[in-house]
Design a protein around this nucleic acid. Structure first.
Lengths: 349, 349
DNA sequence: CCGCACAATAGGAACGTTCCAATCACGGCG
DNA sequence: CGCCGTGATTGGAACGTTCCTATTGTGCGG
């Protein structure tokens, strides 16, 4: 009876030290690759490590070092392919930089966000990369995250927050997209989808207006069709647009998901996206090029942006000044079929 | 000069104890909600915690407890909406159970998988939930994960591995889907996509053959079209199927992504999926119902499956016997338009 | 031949918790 | 009136590292 399983303590540096006939300090030096240890001592230690199957305990090291190798990765909606791509970019870079991501999917819920931020702090993360949930504001955030916590805000700004922001240049990106539509001859260009509470929406809508203004087209508020940033939202917004007395001949969409909904609404009405109504999206998610028809969209190099978040965060962690770390990424327009450019070019030739 | 920043040690239980005029042990008891402390002592301590903005350091606690609150979540491809959904299910349940997920995306690379498994062990995770990368085998895994590490394998089996497996009942699911096609009158039912190295593929193909056999249709190996489990793979496989002398009149696909590629290939040829060729997928990813046409597919309640992984892992961690923990989830066929059932029903009435 | 510099290794405190054993105050009971 | 049980609280060792400060051994110059 009893104690056949002797509590199974895992093997530690001290066990290795004993096995190799050295002190724990020497084992520590070997582990760090210090050149202070003699070659054959090193070998004896390494042999012992191998033999006993020792695994380094980073938690214990962190306790002493007080700064851990964990980074909180707070994502507003992992189910959205755009954010999944971003997460993969962050994750990859983090491992490369010697950190390890703790995932928290807030599902656009600010309460859940508050909860996970607390949890991350308890787990002593070295820093946090966060795409804020819809409706997160600077004031609430200030109570949840001390300004001393290295933090990068990504993809959606939080006005008034002191943390660096990294994201695409939404305004320039949509300006270029809408300018492209105008160049194709469109004069009534609608804007589909988006939630006013998100800065991304404000920026993309501003770019749309910029392009219109630059072409001398007066702003018509009736051409703005707000909708949830989902496929159904896009479908619905497109329906509303088509129901107008004078529907737009082209639409620029908040993102690719909305654009996919819009193209679907058109197809179901027997209209051909790109021929009857031009459609452009934003984000260039992987699905965009497989849409029917393939989506013209604005690429922001999401994965690269994720990597940049990770890299900038490590700088913050090392104590670099947050001031220089904000960044707006260049975008580029990917012309496929949904905007009708190909057709127009054929016609011209 | 110098030391204007006095190293900024964070406030600890000892600081709280001093501030409240009690011992650290008492603070610890308060934190655990023990009823051994007198009410007004508790209040003094809680006030001090509030006042000093104390944050519990779980890492330090884990060091002593030797079992941490971290769980490794190893995902083969987060970019795949199916796995993103799974990850969200796992993540959510994990937080509810008091654990915190460390994310590792292996990107189907067994070397990266080996690397992250080591890293997770170093970070002293309490357990691991893993959807193995393509090509992971039991032998290699045995060297990377001790059998004592609580581990759940999900979505793809590793034959010969001692760890519990949780996933959908692939064979029954595809049997039902193919039976549905046969019931609609099809006699030449192809199988599109999938990688022989993944058990999922073997199981789904077996279900296809089961249904054929049950209907007395001899197995025709020419109707099997292997392809990478991507949209392009599905397109390509569909093209190959159509190029046959006697093409199949219906295809069952390895997963929804492949099925979406297949429907696209049909549309681009001017054929109508569901009318000219019936198509069924597997997984019921969110995109499936927004496909053109909406995909008939096999739902396996991915998110729920993720939650079950988390729940079973905590049982393993608590020392429960792994033997009873394997689980094959019920699937159900979601009939939409791509299989042509709606049309047939209209015709019949 | 001694002391010394230097390379190599060892010892111990510290990190922030947990948990066990010990202490203390207090009242009731024999 | 002293003893003891009980409720409340405390001190200290332990967890597995790091890092600073010894301590040891060795060859060499004076």
């Amino acid at each position: 009876m009893g104690d056949q399983k002797p509590a199974r303590r895992s093997t530690t540096m001290i066990d290795i030290a004993r096995a190799a006939g050295v002190s724990k300090s020497t084992v520590s030096l070997v582990l760090k690759g210090s050149d202070l240890v003699k070659a054959d001592t090193r070998q004896r230690v390494e042999a012992a490590i191998e033999r006993l199957g020792y695994v380094y305990n980073r938690g214990a090291a962190n306790l002493r070092a007080s700064s851990s190798s964990f980074v909180g990765m707070v994502i507003s909606d992992l189910t959205n392919p755009f954010f999944a791509e971003l997460a993969v970019g962050i994750e990859n870079a983090l491992y490369q930089l010697g950190f390890v991501p703790i995932l928290a999917n807030t599902n656009e819920d600010v309460e859940r966000q508050a909860y996970v931020l607390r949890s991350l702090r308890e787990h002593n993360v070295a820093g946090i990369i966060m795409s804020p949930a819809r409706g997160a504001d600077a004031w609430a955030l200030a109570n949840q995250l001390p300004a001393t916590m290295p933090t990068i805000i990504t993809m959606r700004r939080i006005p008034g927050s002191p943390f660096p922001y990294i994201g695409p240049d939404n305004r320039a990106g949509s300006r270029e997209a809408v300018a492209h539509l105008l160049r194709l001859g469109h004069r009534r260009v609608g804007y589909l989808g988006g939630d006013e509470k998100i800065t991304t929406q404000q920026e993309r809508a501003a770019g749309w207006q910029d392009a219109l203004a630059a072409a001398g087209i007066p702003y018509d508020p009736d051409l703005m069709f707000p909708a949830p940033p989902t496929r159904d939202g896009g479908r619905d917004a497109m329906e509303r647009a088509l129901a107008m007395a004078r529907p737009p001949t082209a639409v620029f969409c908040y993102n690719d998901i909305v654009a996919m909904g819009a193209t679907r609404a058109l197809s179901m009405r027997g209209l051909a996206p790109g021929r009857d109504v031009a459609v452009i999206g934003f984000d260039d998610i992987a699905e965009a090029e497989h849409n029917a028809p393939p989506l013209t969209t604005v690429n922001a190099d999401t994965r690269e942006m994720g990597a940049r978040c990770a890299e900038s965060l490590t700088r913050l962690i090392r104590g670099e000044d947050p001031a220089g770390l904000s960044f707006a990424g260049r975008t580029r327009l990917i012309v496929r079929e949904s905007c009708g450019a190909a057709r127009l070019e054929r016609k011209a030739s």
